[in-house]
Design a protein around this nucleic acid. Structure first.
Lengths: 193, 193
DNA sequence: CCGGTTTTATGACCTATATCATATTAGATC
DNA sequence: GATCTAATATGATATAGGTCATAAAACCGG
């Protein structure tokens, strides 16, 4: 969709190795990041080091726009969870893109809307549901585009960091769910039934 | 900002009395709602009746766009927390508005962005912080545009429903915070120091 | 200012999940 | 296939906050 724009302004691609931090929490935003390939995680950390995964972004997605647009410092940091190629677009060009490309601004509105859906769903879960229900909802969501028999590539720690639980609780609860036939476990991996 | 549009298509205003439900969770979205006056709350309810306040909207704000745009059924219901006048705009007109009015679509992007900020902040709190910290963060946020000495017009129950705590916990914690000088209590009302 | 309703308050007890400690297993690397 | 590291597993114990019950204020309409 954006190829004309890329060509016109010849933005360059930057490679981030697995584990590299793209930006830190507290920093002032300078770019929107378009993912060419790879995967990044957006994570908040509290004063005593507990992490919460706010989002996972993959190829063809972008991140960092809300803070850039509102000119508010980041609340999360972002880290490449595998080798990742990003295209950095600064604020003036991003605004130009929004102005010039109707389809893009519509896509942004839809993207923001669906992130809101996800966050509303998780808020409801964290506020009112217990471990098993939370994990059921989260896993079902993560399985969105997984076919029956496919496995989930998130560690128990990552699931814990997305659901506000602790690893041990996730491990125990998932075993219980497997025993109840809600999912299948094989070599530790979680499979969709 | 939108007056031309309202005049052009002469949308009518509908009055909802305090306590009236605008839409129920599970319904298929038909309109975006622009608030002319009053206040509405967006609330999710779980299977055993526990409520979570996803958002509070006031005059000059709008709500219901994400579900309408994505054509997904509502996850929350909305209720007038005081007598409220709404302007209902159906999907075709909303899309037309987005197309015709650049400023409006930019405003929508910013609105969605700041809702995302709020939800990210609350998710982090619910996932990793305990009662006092959660309430401190929530109250500070709600005090955004309250001047020193002003009071908060949310009941303990409402604060509980926004923070994922129970009323009793909110009551106890707020007393503790008042004792610690983090806020002032007078006749049950919470005042900014 | 009276009776009804909503909101705040407080105590006693309970439980889901965090925490801590220590194995075991799976996957990567040479 | 031996070694190292990351992930999963499991038991024992602690605790923040939930739950339940009951009361006292505050507010509100007539």
């Amino acid at each position: 969709m954006l190829s004309n724009f890329w060509i016109k302004y010849h933005f360059k691609t930057i490679l981030y190795k697995k584990g590299a931090v793209i930006y830190e929490s507290g920093q002032t935003p300078r770019y929107v990041y378009f993912i060419k390939s790879g995967e990044i995680r957006m994570v908040t950390v509290n004063h005593d080091g507990k992490e919460f995964i706010q989002g996972v972004f993959k190829a063809k997605q972008y991140f960092g726009e809300p803070a850039l647009l509102l000119q508010r410092s980041y609340l999360a940091y972002t880290i490449a969870s595998r080798d990742t190629e990003l295209i950095l677009v600064d604020r003036p060009h991003f605004l130009k893109l929004l102005e010039e490309d109707r389809a893009f601004s519509m896509n942004l509105i839809e993207t923001l809307s669906s992130r809101l859906f996800y966050k509303s769903m998780m808020l409801e879960e964290l506020a009112n549901e217990q471990a098993e229900h939370r994990l059921q909802t989260l896993i079902t969501y993560l399985w969105r585009d997984t076919e029956k028999g496919g496995s989930l590539d998130f560690t128990r720690q990552a699931l814990a960091d997305m659901s506000g639980l602790r690893v041990e609780t996730v491990i125990r609860t998932i075993k219980k769910m497997a025993a109840a036939g809600e999912l299948k476990l094989s070599r530790g991996k979680i499979f969709k039934i």
